[in-house]
Simulated assay, not measured.
Amino acid sequence: MSRTSPNRSTYRALSALALLTLTAGAVTACGGNDPAPEHSASHPAKPAASHPAKASASPAADRAGASKLHMITNAGHRVAFHVTQGNGRTIVLDSGGGEDSSYWNDLVPKLHADTGATVITYDRSGLGKSEVVPGPWKVESAVSDLKAGLDQLGVNRNVTLVSHSQAGEIANYFAKENPRMLSGAVLVDANLPPLFTDVEIARLVAASRPQVDAAKKDPDEPRNRQLLATAENYVPAHRAFHKVAWPDSVPATVIVSEKTPLEASPVDAQRWRDAATLFAKSGPDRTLVTAKGSSHDVPKDRPDLVLKEIEGMVATPAG
């Protein structure tokens, strides 16, 4: 994927709202120290045992280590799940907002080879091979899609969930609703509940407003569609997210990038780091890891670290 195209740069500027992927990008959320800014600016910068059975599978190769496409039907739409079959545990990789399953292509074969686990990636609605769902983006619907996919693939326990950026919201709700399915989670510079105070939500919304307005000029472009769908109910959704509690029974490794997605705004960058620290300290079996030198795009900047933490979580004895 290009890191230099104007469209990609504009898209990454939306990271101020923490709406979308933020991969390899960082922006100013809100300059200065005022809790409610009068103006804002965005600055693009580089900153597992499962047995797939019930779903309809593509005619992919059966060779060891090959990924197979399974189209899952849930709530009237189809969602694409990509399964690299293994043994024992299952690793589910969930991309940041606006990114489809291909984001993990470099890590999947290494995880499969190193752990022997089944590795699953999927395309959230409106991305990759999954069908568009009209209306505002709802985390509850995303959780439902993930749960339905795993159910139809025969995955119901010993899952290590790996979530980047916006997928952190899905992870928190999924863990709350399905703690027994998870043996652990690795939250990679993920959106976490402590960040989303009313003050911070207001700052992020103000910062992203120019990009949201620009996206309205071409609402059918997939990335714009995702942005607008997420922006539509952003405030109430994140006020609710702020109250979500991670279950104590699910171990979690929290990887926070050194630069953060809000690197150009020291105030908001610190709040991002503080949110990760608070989350990690708020329950048992949680570990905070800083990805030194990394932008928000940790899986691309520090794949060695991400692999190490995922493999360490997979190796942890199931509770």
Rank of each mutant, 00 (worst) to 15 (best):
D213G: 04
A185Y: 03
S67G: 14
G32A: 11
A315D: 14
E169I: 12
T160M: 05
V199C: 05
K292M: 09
H51S: 15
V289Q: 07
R12N: 13
K281C: 00
R3V: 08
W104I: 06
H242F: 12
D62F: 12
L307F: 09
T118L: 07
A206C: 05
K259L: 11
E131G: 09
K176D: 04
D304A: 03
A142C: 05
M181I: 11
R223D: 15
F241L: 12
T28A: 15
L93Q: 01
L195M: 12
L278S: 13
S257V: 03
Q85Y: 00
T277E: 13
S130M: 04
N158L: 09
D34R: 14
P37Y: 10
A142I: 02
H112G: 04
S5K: 11
L20Y: 01
R8G: 06
T160V: 15
N178V: 02
L93Y: 05
Y173F: 10
A61G: 14
N172V: 12
A275I: 00
H82D: 08
A252R: 00
V108E: 04
K54R: 15
N158E: 15
G135K: 10
A215N: 06
I310N: 06
F196N: 06
S56T: 15
T287F: 00
V155T: 14
T115W: 06
S249N: 05
R273Y: 00
P247M: 08
L192P: 01
V235Y: 00
A252E: 00
R203W: 01
K243Y: 06
S144V: 02
D213F: 05
T121P: 01
S144T: 11
V155M: 10
A214C: 05
V289E: 11
M313Y: 01
A206H: 09
A237V: 04
V256M: 07
L307C: 10
N233K: 14
D218G: 09
E131N: 03
A29F: 05
K259F: 07
N178S: 06
F241K: 08
R225H: 15
D100E: 10
N33I: 14
P266G: 10
